[in-house]
Each structure stands twice: as C-alpha cells, then as structure tokens.
Computed example of a mutant assay.
Amino acid sequence: MSTQPDHGHELIPRPERTPAAVRIALARLAPHRLSEMEQHKEEALGAALQDGKIGHLQYWLTYWHAQVEIERRPDLRSRYQAALDSVHNTGTRDDPDFRAAMSELRAVETEARQAMSA
C-alpha cells in the first residue's frame, strides 16, 4: 500500500529534480511551454551571473518542477487552468474574482511544491 496521497490519474511519473529530467517531462506533457522554460532559464542564468547567486537557478528549477507537477496531474491542471482563465477574463486587480483566481493559482502551485517534497 502506498503512503502517497491518491490524486487520481497521473499522466507520467514525477521526474527527478534535475534540469534535464524536468525538461524531458515538460516536453512530454506541454511541449508548447518549452520556449517559455528556456527563456526563463536564460533570465535566471543571467541574473545568477550578474549577482553571483545560484538562488536564481534554484528558483528556476523549483518553479518548473512545480509546473511539471501541475501538468502531470489532471486534478491540479484543471484547477490551474480554470483559475488562469478567470484571471484573464476578470477586470482589474481590485476585482474580487481576480483576487480569488490569483489565490487559487497560488494554492495550486503550493500544493504542487508540497507534493514534490513529500
């Protein structure tokens, strides 16, 4: 019996926390996001070189590992997409629907990060 929580169907196994494994997983799940990942990596690398801190690259890897977690789990993916759609379809940042959608995006990302460290 597994001690992992049951989240329903997972599209692929959780990848290791390495840049190559995360990239391969993203290519399988959401290839349309690879250029976004690459651009974000270049920005993180540039910031790391500019200020000499590896934290930018650690953040980049954590962020994209969480994005893969969201993409590989349909339960998280559907919540994330619904919240993202709501963010794009609401008015201003003062709109209660916008704030609720942003809260849901943060909740999904937090759940994904927690699942990765479980």
Rank of each mutant, 00 (worst) to 15 (best):
M37D: 05
R106I: 08
K53Y: 12
Q50C: 05
D6H: 14
L105V: 06
L105W: 08
A44W: 10
E16D: 15
T110A: 02
T18M: 08
A47Y: 00
R77L: 01
I54G: 02
A47M: 03
L57N: 01
E43L: 03
M37E: 07
E38Y: 12
V87H: 01
A112V: 06
E69S: 06
A20P: 08
D51Q: 04
R73G: 00
E38Q: 12
R28K: 14
L29I: 12
V108G: 02
Q67T: 04
I12Q: 13
H7P: 11
M1L: 07
M37H: 10
N89I: 00
H88Q: 08
P15L: 09
V22G: 01
G8H: 13
Q4S: 14
Y80A: 05
R99H: 11
P19D: 06
Y59S: 03
V108P: 06
E43W: 10
A83S: 03
S86T: 12
T110R: 03
D85C: 06
L26N: 04
S103W: 02
A118C: 08
M37V: 06
T92D: 10
R72Y: 12
M116S: 15
I24C: 10
L45C: 05
L26I: 10
T110E: 02
Y80T: 02
A66R: 04
R28F: 11
I24V: 14
R33M: 10
V68D: 03
A115I: 09
S2M: 13
K53T: 07
Q81H: 10
R113L: 07
V22P: 05
A21W: 09
G55F: 07
L29A: 15
N89S: 09
H88N: 09
T92C: 09
G55L: 00
E71A: 12
H7F: 15
L76V: 05
T3F: 15
G8E: 12
G8P: 03
W64Y: 00
G55V: 02
V68W: 00
A20I: 14
V22S: 05
R72L: 05
F98P: 02
L76W: 08
R14I: 13
H65V: 04
S86D: 11
A20N: 12
H56N: 05
R33V: 05
A47D: 01
D51V: 00
R14F: 14
P31S: 09
P74L: 00
E42W: 14
T3N: 15
I70T: 01
Q58I: 05
A115P: 08
T90L: 00
V22R: 06
R73C: 07
A25K: 03
P74G: 01
L61T: 00
E69C: 01
Q114S: 09
A44G: 04
E111M: 08
